[in-house]
C-alpha cells in the first residue's frame, strides 16, 4: 500500500487535493449520462427534458407491450446465449491447448486468436458480409451467431488463460497417478478450479454479443434485429422515451453482469488462497 494519500507538506497536500477534485469531476463525467437518463424514462411527457412534468410508467408499458421491442429482446438473448456457449467451448479448449503448447508458432497463433478484438468491427462485418451472403448466412440467426462467436471468443481465451496461469498442473498429475482418465481429470479436477475464469469469460462473451450492433447492421434481416440494433434505429429516427426505458433496463442488466463478474473475481481469489 502506498502512503501517497497521507501528504505531509503544503504542496503535497495541494497536489493531492487537486487529484481528488479532478478525479471527482471525471467520475461525474463518467456516471452523469447513465444516471441522468433514468428519471427521464419515468417521465409522463414525450419530451426528454427536465423538470419532469409528472411520473408515469407508460414508456415501460410501451416497451413491454411492443412486438418490435420484445422480438429484439428475444433475438438478443438467442444470439447472445448461442454465441456464448460456442465461444466458451472453443475458447476454453484453445486456452487449455495454448497453456501446454510449446512452439515458436505460439505467439503467432495467440495473435490470430486475439485478432478479432483488435480489427475494427466494420472491417470484420464487411468481410463476413461479403463471405456469408453467397452462403445464405445473412438474414438468419446462424450467420449472426457465427460472427458474434468470432468476436467474443478472444475474451474467453484471455480470461481462461489468465486463470490457467495460476493453476497447479501437479493437481492433474496427481489425479492421473491415482488412475483418473484424462476426461475425468478434466471434469473433476481442472474444470472446477478454472470455472471462475470460464464463467467470467462467458460473461464477457455474452456482453460482447449483447452489445454488438455493427455486424447486426450488415447481417441481420428484419426478423433478427437485436436490442442494440433497435436502439440504433430509434436513435437515428427520433429518440422517444421508450428508448430511455430500454436503456434503463439494459443498464440494470449491465449492473447485474458486473456484479456477477465481481462475485466471480472474489470467489477466484478465495479459491486461489485456499489452494496455495
Amino acid at each position: 500500500m502506498s502512503d501517497n494519500h497521507a501528504p505531509r507538506t503544503l504542496s503535497q497536500r495541494l497536489g493531492w487535493t487537486g487529484t481528488i477534485v479532478a478525479a471527482t469531476l471525471v467520475f461525474v463525467f463518467l456516471m452523469a449520462p447513465i444516471i441522468a437518463i433514468v428519471p427521464l424514462s419515468f417521465s409522463s411527457s414525450t419530451y426528454l427534458t427536465y423538470p419532469l412534468p409528472g411520473v408515469s410508467m407508460r414508456w415501460y408499458q410501451d416497451l413491454f407491450t411492443s412486438d418490435k421491442w420484445m422480438l429484439s429482446v428475444k433475438n438478443s438473448f438467442i444470439i447472445g446465449i448461442a454465441s456464448t456457449v460456442l465461444s466458451m467451448i472453443l475458447g476454453t479448449l484453445a486456452a487449455l491447448g495454448l497453456a501446454s503448447w510449446k512452439s515458436r508458432l505460439k505467439s503467432l497463433v495467440m495473435a490470430i486468436v486475439l485478432s478479432p478484438m483488435v480489427v475494427p468491427v466494420v472491417i470484420t462485418a464487411v468481410g463476413v458480409y461479403f463471405f456469408f451472403a453467397p452462403l445464405g448466412l445473412t438474414g438468419n440467426y446462424a450467420g449472426l451467431i457465427l460472427a458474434h462467436t468470432a468476436l467474443a471468443t478472444p475474451f474467453v481465451v484471455i480470461t481462461v488463460s489468465a486463470t490457467l496461469q495460476s493453476f497447479d498442473t501437479n493437481l492433474s498429475r496427481a489425479a492421473a497417478s491415482l488412475g483418473a482418465p484424462p476426461l475425468l481429470t478434466f471434469f473433476k479436477v481442472v474444470l472446477p478450479l478454472i470455472l471462475p475464469g470460464v464463467a467470467s469469460g462467458a460473461l464477457f462473451a455474452f456482453a460482447t454479443s449483447f452489445d454488438e450492433v455493427v455486424t447486426v447492421l450488415f447481417l441481420a434481416g428484419p426478423e433478427q434485429r437485436t436490442l442494440p440494433r433497435e436502439m440504433f434505429a430509434g436513435i437515428r429516427e427520433n429518440i422517444s422515451p421508450t428508448i430511455t426505458a430500454a436503456a434503463v433496463i439494459l443498464t440494470i442488466f449491465s449492473v447485474a453482469l458486473l456484479s456477477c463478474l465481481e462475485w466471480l473475481r472474489r470467489r477466484g481469489e478465495k479459491l486461489k488462497a485456499a489452494v496455495h
Binding site: 427521464l40 452489445d211 429518440i239 428508448i243 458486473l258
Partner: peptide, 22 residues
Amino acid sequence: MIFVLLPFWTSLLVRTCAWIVL
C-alpha cells in the same frame, strides 16, 4: 473503481443515447 467499470459495462448504445439526451 465501480464508477469506471459501470460505464465500461453499460451498452454503447445506452451511453450514446444518454449523451444525445444530455
